[in-house]
Design a protein around this nucleic acid. Structure first.
Lengths: 153, 153
DNA sequence: CGGTTGTCGCAAGCAATTCGCAGTCTAGGC
DNA sequence: GCCTAGACTGCGAATTGCTTGCGACAACCG
């Protein structure tokens, strides 16, 4: 995973400063295994430094997105945006309606989509957001009416 | 396009009533060529009957979604949800960053994705939301910095 | 080690969506 | 047709997720 970016130099290179808030947000984002909402990020940052404000978390995330360090996506019917560090590789999201887990997987699927659009529709694909909602292996056998306990509420 | 559903019977069949608000929302949705936000739908409904409240538009849309008559999707970084009548066929969305147009296309792409997940990841895909942002044929040559006039602001 | 001037924390503001409630209108029985 | 139960609605207020204005503060250049 190529998220081992030196945050300071990148920021400074664009005329920005490396601050505590940005550093903590970045570390949280990089350490996360799944996609986080701004509130989840803020909570983890607070655990380290309660002085960091939610607004600063949003501002940091927005800045990271501008610098292509992070990526925002809205998944499923969820109204809150979720964030992840930017990868060089294309991937797609799996959202489980059972446990609420959001994982992502790399694969040539996205490249296939891109090629299909370029050749068949003359549409120059910029970002391809492939969001699949359904039941993960663990939740698959259950019915929709009685979902198993959410592990990520 | 198989959106020629008799709204009344479907509603009544599920113990609901056919009201003016629901009828107008449904007609607006069916008559639309592109995906509409709740506010856009409300505006068009208002043009016919200003007495219909925004809350009722939301309630109608939610009900339609429950009955599989309509489908909600969140496209790109847009914070507002967009709605379309439900189709029998799977499709994917193309969102142009130039003119803002949202179109959708049917194709076997979605079925390919579904098969790939079932076979390769044991993930039972429920809905596949394939959102592609990029430049449509018309907007492709332009640069990102000076986008052409948005036709759907 | 200062001096700029980006950034931050805070609190107010905004947009999309939902909720509570009392009055209204649909559907079904007569 | 007419009547009644209760499903729906309009309204306004509440929630949620996010953004912004502003004075204080602290990174970074020299």
């Amino acid at each position: 995973m190529d998220t081992d970016v030196m945050l300071g130099p990148v920021l400074r290179g664009h005329g920005h400063r490396l601050t505590r808030a940005r550093q903590l947000v970045w570390e949280t984002l990089r350490g996360a295994e799944r996609h986080l909402t701004a509130h989840e990020i803020a909570a983890q940052v607070h655990a380290v430094d309660p002085g960091v404000n939610l607004a600063s978390v949003y501002r940091s995330l927005t800045l990271f997105a501008e610098l292509d360090l992070a990526r925002e996506s809205r998944l499923g019917a969820d109204s809150a945006a979720r964030w992840e560090p930017a990868h060089p590789d294309e991937h797609f999201h799996l959202v489980c309606t059972g446990c609420g887990e959001v994982s992502h997987h790399a694969g040539d699927l996205v490249e296939q989509v891109r090629a299909h659009l370029r050749d068949g529709h003359r549409f120059r694909a910029d970002t391809v957001d492939l969001v699949v909602t359904g039941r993960c292996r663990r939740c698959a056998p259950r019915t929709t009416d009685a979902p198993p306990p959410r592990v990520h509420p």
